[in-house]
Write a protein that binds this DNA or RNA. Structure first.
Lengths: 373, 373
DNA sequence: TGCGAAAATGTTTCCGCTCACATTCGCGGG
DNA sequence: CCCGCGAATGTGAGCGGAAACATTTTCGCA
């Protein structure tokens, strides 16, 4: 089929960061007349074309494509040859129209910018692709429920096998519930008021890992700087923190509300709202920890000598913070796979999906946490 | 239409980070018999349903949807009402099958994890959505050309309006060129051997902004730590750096090859391959700068007193590094819009696309660069 | 008041594919 | 050598929407 030509634009009349152009799409270029040079591509081959070439019926081709066994070897080979010669590509739109079944998964996420979600997306995307699904990433503006509504409208028009919502805030959660997506949905980081032991949540487990480490180090006065509290994940972490703190009989220091950003971590410390008695800070993510570290440094408080700090996520940078950050590693890749499997189970309608082992958060001990003075 | 029920799983028998379940998709559940409770959704309304309800022909509905003017107000209203009552959603698969036109853009990117690409993706996604396009994000494994081939196969089956390739490495560039995607393609960060002034490239301009700043500060011995050199963007930055260094008559310090990661920045400095005469480092991105900062700190070299460091990207964390990082800000949002527009121009076949102002990199002066001793 | 053209609306066929059903083929047994 | 039955293959319809073309209104104006 088409051998598209790669054309380097000969002169950059308008600034662009270099562009290689392939123009082979049949734009049904409806310019009345026009000297518009439309590179017309040979139309993509259909199963009918293949069938004709192979001297069989289109249905036989369809069967071959579907992996149907009962095809005579001779026929099979003719089809295979024709397929190859014509460089046939199935038209997925037609297929999903005919089958009313899709191979596309939408991933909704509040911010791709945050380290966690974006890496989870990556993980989901990878797992999906491996299974022959395509992933639509749909960024949603958390602060604008109108846009959210639009987005969901778009989604509903797509032929989706399922939807994954990541980094879910209350607003998004409600909107999704209300707007009723007609597809299997996996809502990551659900409401904090989960049934079952909160320990099931990797958020809770992870934060507890950090807290326990601090306790083991000898800390008793520990405060938690949270993520944005309208995020389910932030709530789960708070809950995990408070539960273990209670269990261990720690003094209750009021949590300090952050919003996942380094700025909020900085503000939390710089604002002076932390009780001087505190010897350790558990941050809801690495960025917050970074901000806190910075504020501490500026205030002349040494970390970890005077105060310990832990993060969450283990982003690649964490190791290079000063001091190197003790944090909790989440295997996002694996988490993505997990989510994908869970969604697939849903799609298949499994009662009790077997999605493989749950991803265990892992404590990464570096230099930002040490025994208290 | 369907009012999908949100069901909270009553008990977590398998660990999941909370799941809200909506099962309304018609799985054509082909279990022979089975007590499989298939929640059958009322089929989505089609234009035919709407037409019947409004007492018009389906084509009238189609016209209404297409924004056709010549519809009698009374008719128009009946259609609008029916549309609403039935909660009609266009079936995009059908539409694109019929029109042979797609409203989907694929974004290929090597790593979503890197700050730059992932934010650009976000920008593209946003611009696309605003224009009614959906974005498929396709992560590709840079090190595995077989997987790349697969990916492109998948892409070709999709009905795509266009393709954007971000964070393009040589390998990807070649593969894309070779594999011939049949759609308008925007290849970000093209080959370093661009025609036209290299200054057109925001990569080059950006890095020069940093370099010039250092020169203005009085530095003469400046070294560049690069990104992964098989990335087009890394090459463009190197080229920008070298060009300006030459122009200003700076001594040529061999570039130090990095790979975008903090680790590589750390290694570049810690390995001792930097000439002691050097008083400033231009890093190809903020992560590298972070690694360098860390290595400097460990070596007891003070920044910026002893040596200055600049970054590139201005990720949110950069401000909170120690010292606060002087860097170059890229407006990824805007860049995304730019890329989208450029692609659209392609799609429309414009000769000389007007895509709005090119995004200008911006120097962000903070604390990591100061005059040399 | 009636005619014709423009405006409004309807009908048909096709997009590429899968599904349900129909038909043909091939081979073994009576 | 022919029948019958299962395997292999073919045929037709329809998924939901858009485009081309056909038909019916509507309305201005002679």
């Amino acid at each position: 089929m088409t051998l598209a030509a790669v054309v380097r634009s000969p002169s950059l009349t308008w600034p662009r960061d270099s562009v290689a152009i392939v123009t082979m799409f049949p734009h049904t270029n409806t310019r009345k007349q026009g000297k518009t040079v439309t590179v017309r591509q040979r139309k993509a081959a259909t199963i009918y074309d293949v069938a004709t070439r192979a001297g069989v019926s289109h249905q036989t081709v369809s069967r071959y494509l579907a992996g149907f066994e009962g095809i005579r070897p001779s026929t099979r080979e003719r089809v295979a040859t024709a397929l190859k010669e014509l460089d046939y590509r199935p038209n997925l739109a037609a297929r999903s129209l005919a089958t009313n079944r899709a191979h596309r998964i939408a991933v909704l996420t509040g911010d791709l910018l945050a380290a966690g979600p974006s890496r989870t997306v990556q993980g989901v995307a990878e797992a999906s692709r491996a299974a022959g699904y395509v992933v639509d990433i749909i960024g949603i503006d958390v602060d604008n429920s109108e846009s959210l509504r639009e987005v969901i409208d778009v989604i509903r028009g797509q032929d989706l096998a399922g939807v994954v919502a990541l980094a879910v805030s209350d607003r998004i959660h409600d909107a999704i519930a209300e707007l009723a997506i007609d597809a299997p949905l996996y809502l990551d980081s659900g409401p904090a008021d989960l049934p079952g032991p909160v320990g099931q949540s990797f958020n809770a487990v992870g934060i507890q890992l950090a807290l326990q480490h601090l306790i083991d180090l000898g800390h008793r006065e520990i405060v938690h700087i949270t993520g944005a509290m309208d995020y389910l994940a932030a709530k789960a972490r708070v809950k995990g923190f408070e539960q273990l703190a209670l269990e261990r009989g720690l003094r209750v220091h009021p949590i300090i509300e952050g919003d996942w950003t380094p700025r909020s971590g900085y503000a939390a410390v710089a604002s002076g709202q932390i009780d001087p008695i505190v010897t350790a800070i558990v941050a809801a993510n690495d960025q917050i920890a970074l901000g806190a570290l910075r504020a501490l440094d500026e205030a002349g408080v040494r970390c970890p000598a005077d105060i310990s700090v832990t993060g969450f996520d283990d982003i690649p940078e964490a190791e290079y913070y000063t001091p190197s950050l003790t944090t909790v590693r989440i295997d996002f890749q694996q988490q993505g796979t997990y989510i994908f499997n869970a969604l697939m189970a849903q799609i298949r309608g499994d009662e009790r999906p077997e999605t493989g082992a749950f991803i265990k958060p892992q404590l990464v001990v570096r230099a930002s946490a040490a025994p208290p003075r």
